[in-house]
């Protein structure tokens, strides 16, 4: 019983520390110009470039816009903040604090998660105001927003493990992954229309499951069972978290 209480206490202190890291990032990085550009404007223009003029229903287009907005905004904070903190040597503060590396990764991911949740409301509200969209499932929308945001925030933290002091280095690598993901995840091209060889790749993309789950809230029909989407997003989160933890440890040696 005492051990359990001790573990619970330790868990709470780690969560508090993770929240402190997230708050610090919110105060420092949310209004940085390069984060606004890569987190909000980039997905918006990307969407406009590919979606405007296509004969797709708003109930198909809006979930896609929300999904890629989350992809770009959630994964944009850490690839900027962590290299800057390496350069300023403030990252050493986190690495030498009495908290686990998992907590550092979690705290960093939390800030990207909260940022993208806020940003995701922009296309969500725009969809209501500008297009005749209707939400038919609140639960898949909420779960989809939460899991997709956290998944891509953790992916951003994972890429930021690369030991560089230049945000541009990480952004370049990240875009090599993020841009192809858009085209193989059913955002612009329905999954059914992707060739069989490409369909294999779609299963490896977390955006596929995020987009599918958010689509369930608007169109009501999904490619996968929503529970599969949830399960896959959870698996991706765990993989990203553990790989990120491993890489931060390895690159600190």
């Amino acid at each position: 019983m005492t051990d359990l209480a001790e573990h619970c206490g330790q868990f709470c202190t780690e969560l508090n520390a993770a929240w402190a890291i997230a708050k610090k990032d919110i105060l420092i990085y949310y209004l940085k110009p390069n984060i606004i550009v890569s987190g909000l404007l980039f997905p918006l223009f990307m969407f406009l470039a590919f979606a405007v003029g296509r004969p797709a229903a708003p109930s198909v287009m809006i979930p896609g816009l929300i999904a890629i907005t989350i992809l770009f905004s959630a994964s944009s904070i850490e690839p900027v903040s962590i290299p800057i903190e390496r350069r300023m040597k403030t990252f050493d503060r986190l690495l030498s604090a009495p908290i686990s590396l998992h907590t550092v990764v979690l705290g960093e991911s939390l800030s990207g998660f909260l940022y993208s949740l806020g940003i995701a409301f922009v296309p969500l509200i725009a969809g209501f105001i500008l297009f005749p969209t209707q939400i038919i499932g609140i639960a898949p929308l909420v779960v989809g927003l939460l899991l997709t945001s956290f998944c891509f925030a953790t992916m951003g933290t994972l890429f930021a493990a690369y030991p560089t002091e230049s945000p541009g280095d990480i952004m370049s690598m990240l875009n090599l992954v993020r841009l192809p993901l858009i085209f193989v995840s059913g955002v612009f091209i329905p999954l059914e229309q992707i060739p069989p060889i490409g369909q294999f790749v779609t299963f490896l993309s977390p955006l596929t499951y995020g987009n599918d789950l958010i689509s369930a809230a608007f169109a009501g029909n999904t490619h996968f069972n929503p529970l599969i989407d949830i399960l896959m997003l959870c698996i991706f989160i765990l993989i990203f978290q553990f790989v990120a933890n491993h890489l931060y440890k390895k690159f600190n040696e």
Partner: peptide
């Protein structure tokens, strides 16, 4: 407590 060689404070805070 650790005082690193560089004054590693958050200058935006």
């Amino acid at each position: 407590g650790i005082v690193h060689e560089t004054s590693n404070i958050y200058t935006d805070l």
